[in-house]
Amino acid sequence: MKKLLIFLLLVPMAFAAWQSVAGVAIMISLGIVAAIYMVGKGFGINELQMMGKEEMFQLIATGILVVVLVSSDGLLNAISTSDAFSEGQPTMQTNAMAMLDNTIGEMGGILSTIQNNDRKNQVEGSKSSQCSIMGTGYSVSGCGGYSMLASPMSMAGGIVGFSIGELSAVHRLIQISNEYAFSLLLPLGIVLRTIKLTRGAGGLLIALGISLHIMLPAGIIFSEMLASSFAASPESAAYTGAAEDIDWDDYECNAGDTMPVTADKTENEENVIDVFNIMKSNIRKYMFQAMIRGTLGPVLALLLMAGSIKAISSAAGSEVDVSALSRFV
């Protein structure tokens, strides 16, 4: 009967909100700290008394964190939903995800263009002509010049692919924070911070929650604002706008043609040089999209996040070495 009564008393605890759990954790820790201090005072052990005082200070800091989180929920929501950051979207997080989706779409278009040009170039460059009758004949490959474009095309594909991957990773991190930062990571971090053994983990969860939810989207929005400001300036003419399309029907390779049409070039070589010049004129536009918007932007946002994790985790009471995370950037 006693066990049933105890169980019934504990049942409401299972359905308590995280604030109640945090309060209970603080009270339990307070009891333990008081016991430690009493033992230290009773036996004259200064170190235990100092430990008790330090733990009391940490409990006060944790209580302040709980109050700040509950009261500043509205403030953080106001920051997230302010027009400066959200730009018409419900929150800055959804705004950042929308920007990333847009950039990924543009990178996908660029990759598709590069793939198409690469394929056409390689098909033309692979052509060779043969003619033999009764075992006598010749073979000639007049399309070797097209092979010079293969290497830069591969490099371009790799760079654009890398930017797509980086944008996707940042998108996934913001997605995680949007769903779990304030509902799980932050409150659980506060609860864990009350216990001495898990203070490090709690501090890291708090830092992770705040950094993923605020700093990472803010970094994306700021870098996108910088890129948009540049794109709107007169100096950006060479870096913005649509890239010139290559109509490969005009640049087909005639594999058997090895007769020069100019002083030292065949028509095939003239064609591939024309293609090269078109690509050269487009390279600034691709560089701006792939390197600035697609790579530098996410890198800056990730560095901002890593620095924020280090600073906030120190303030939250756990010194963690985030250099391992920074290396992933």
Partner: peptide
């Protein structure tokens, strides 16, 4: 005999 053009129709996926 053997008269024609040799090519890789699916080549060019380097990027």
């Amino acid at each position: 005999g053997y008269s024609g053009e040799n090519m890789q129709p699916f080549g060019g996926h380097g990027a």
